[in-house]
Design a protein around this nucleic acid. Sequence first.
DNA 1: GATAGGATATGAGCATTGCTCATATTCTGA
DNA 2: TCAGAATATGAGCAATGCTCATATCCTATC
Lengths: 210, 210
Amino acid sequence: MIAKSRQPVETKRRIPRQARAEETVSAILEGAAQVLEAGGVAGFTTNAVAERAGVSIGTLYQYFSDKGALLHALGEREMQLTITSVAKALRNDDEAPIEERVRAVVRAIVNAFHGRLRARKAVVQAVLAQGLAIESVAPVAAFIAAAGATAHRGIARLTPEQQFVVSRALMGTIRAALLEEASFFKSRAFEDELVRLVLSYIGAVSAARA
Amino acid sequence: MIAKSRQPVETKRRIPRQARAEETVSAILEGAAQVLEAGGVAGFTTNAVAERAGVSIGTLYQYFSDKGALLHALGEREMQLTITSVAKALRNDDEAPIEERVRAVVRAIVNAFHGRLRARKAVVQAVLAQGLAIESVAPVAAFIAAAGATAHRGIARLTPEQQFVVSRALMGTIRAALLEEASFFKSRAFEDELVRLVLSYIGAVSAARA
DNA sequence: GATAGGATATGAGCATTGCTCATATTCTGA
DNA sequence: TCAGAATATGAGCAATGCTCATATCCTATC
């Protein structure tokens, strides 16, 4: 008796080995984004994604174990974009005053949500709808927490709870503005308040240490 | 030709007029909560809810236009609980120092999430998954913003953006702790940090005005 | 107490959707 | 050239959201 070849229990089932397979995966992800942009979470069906991507439904399931895995992949894509954006913002002004650095981070995150707002909103919604929030959003938050909390000229290092609070407060507020389609989402006034939120908190922690 | 009787486009279709109908609606909501507690969002099917509630699927749809409406109702129930809890907390110490009042609000919100954590988490997830966040969560946030931001002994009144930031930052952080099942969710240390977050932000706004 | 009509409850079953699997096609290395 | 691996296909099954024709229950009126 020959054992069936085991499939790894991953989000992706088959790993592309040929160029056309890579293209297929890209097409599926792009199709997924388009379907989300067009019809939001409600219209997001795997059959619709496959059709939009120009592949059969079977092909879709060769690369994604289920609908959730597809959303997960989209979420990770967004996450990576944000992380890259934040990292870049921090690299530029390494010795700038803390306010500049915080502002750069805030702006980077907000700007990561440019274009295809409807799709992005839908991705956030869908990712939150599953337990995926933990793995998928936490890295961004952790990165921000670490970045914003590095001991830096009299600024105290943050405890894990404090890192959690500052990162989730920032991400949560931005996410709320996106989901609620706040008119001031990309306004300077909103950015100012987010900067104030982070700075005042970090300042208060530092002050309490002294 | 007789026009069909128009159904109001509401979350609830039929409005209970008899006592047994009220009981039916309660049973459905209770069944929904139980199904969520047992199987999370994944196991939440309308047929399962109807069975658990001891009513037929048809009856369920007499009172709730669709699955979303059911989640919406559960969400509103949670929201109302939180609002009541916060209002009560604020009523007690009307002339207490601002720190006490903020702490009371923070504690009230966190304590609103006691018991049936799995169901609550699922409700939050489900509500976020639809566009319902806007109508369903915003009232709590607005209430908190208004309550925490009432001009009070040298504390400045907040602009709409500022109210948005302080309420969503607080709610978002608490929600993140719930969804990510943070170990410190109900710890004193976490509460302290939430208080610090709100106080430092309000303080910074006030300081900037002067 | 009888009963007409409104309110409430039922559940078989239809439409849609997530997903599988047997099969076909394409590619690559020897 | 061609065998076998990689990739692609899509009919169709199972599960789920939801409807509607029908049945049962309740209440108001006489």
